[in-house]
């Protein structure tokens, strides 16, 4: 069943584990448990977020929005870190699964970054009185979203997926170097134009009764992310096989097969 792709086959366990054909085999057994785990985590997290935790004495019930906002923001950065690691895998080891991982992660990163902005805007309205504040954190998240969308556009622009993976990997590395610079410049720009009138998250320490639901929801979102990433990777491996089979079919139909 599994069609062998041409990879440099070192006999290490990791390489064998990450071989596209074998990947489809072992990852199948993880999907259902992971789905179950993330469902349970969401049930616990949502319970803690609404019933198991008190309203904040300053922000009131709006603090409950933090339990979706912070996990989304965390995933927006975690996903870039994942893409960065995969990009290195693509460039250094030229591993096909690193290519697949990069491609599967980009839309998820865009989704969670967009969610972080959406929930951030909704949280900002009652607490700051405005949906959008040009503050450093929000602006850099917006730029991160643009970078994700650019990466998706770059993926879609290529026909040759092998070349696309390596080009996107180069761009992902460039982006990783630039994101801190962008963050710094945006912070500088913000302090220049609006001297200290903004609500800061890092001011008071977070109370434990808020931290518990926060951690539970972050875990739930992370599990969901891993699940979606895994399923998308499996689909992507299959899509590549579909593509090579389609090419073979086209060749056979023309009778030009050797």
């Amino acid at each position: 069943m599994s069609e062998v792709k041409q990879t440099h086959s070192e006999p290490g366990w990791f390489t064998r584990l990450a071989h596209p054909g074998l990947f489809l085999g072992w990852s199948r057994h993880i999907v259902i448990p992971l789905a179950g785990l993330s469902t349970i985590a969401f049930a616990i997290g949502l319970y803690l977020a609404f019933w198991g935790s008190p309203a904040d004495y300053q922000m009131g019930d709006t603090v409950r929005m933090m339990y979706v906002h912070v996990p989304a923001a965390w995933l927006s950065q975690f996903c870039y870190a994942l893409m960065f690691a995969s990009a290195i895998g693509t460039l250094v080891w030229r591993h096909p699964m690193a290519d697949v991982s990069q491609k599967a992660a980009a839309p998820l990163g865009a989704l969670f970054t967009a969610l972080a902005l959406f929930t951030g805007a909704l949280w900002g309205r009652p607490t700051w009185g405005t949906y959008w504040e040009w503050d450093g954190r929000m602006t850099s998240t917006l730029v991160l979203l643009l970078i994700y969308l650019g990466i998706i556009a770059l993926w879609r622009a290529f026909d040759d997926q092998l070349k696309a993976a390596r080009i996107v990997a180069v761009f992902t590395l460039i982006g990783a170097v630039n994101i801190p610079i962008i963050k710094f410049s945006v912070d500088w720009w913000h302090t220049l134009h609006q001297p200290a009138s903004v609500f800061r998250l890092d001011g008071p320490t977070i109370a434990p009764e808020i931290l518990t639901p926060l951690l539970a929801m972050t875990l739930a979102f992370s599990l969901l992310f891993m699940l979606l990433h895994l399923v998308r990777m499996r689909t992507e491996v299959r899509k590549r096989r579909v593509r090579s089979l389609e090419l073979a079919q086209a060749r056979a139909a023309k009778g030009a097969r050797p």
């Binding site: 309203a55 009131g60 019930d61 709006t62 409950r64 929005m65 969610l115 929930t119 909704l122 689909t235």
Partner: peptide, 30 residues
């Protein structure tokens, strides 16, 4: 949920909608 309940509902509702859409799309695609 206090005076700002519509914001909280919208935040959770929108997130749920987006996440469910992502799950559905992933499954359909697979």
């Amino acid at each position: 949920l206090g005076q700002h309940w519509e914001f909280i509902a919208l935040a959770y509702g929108g997130t749920a909608l987006a996440v469910l859409a992502a799950i559905a799309w992933t499954c359909i695609d697979a």
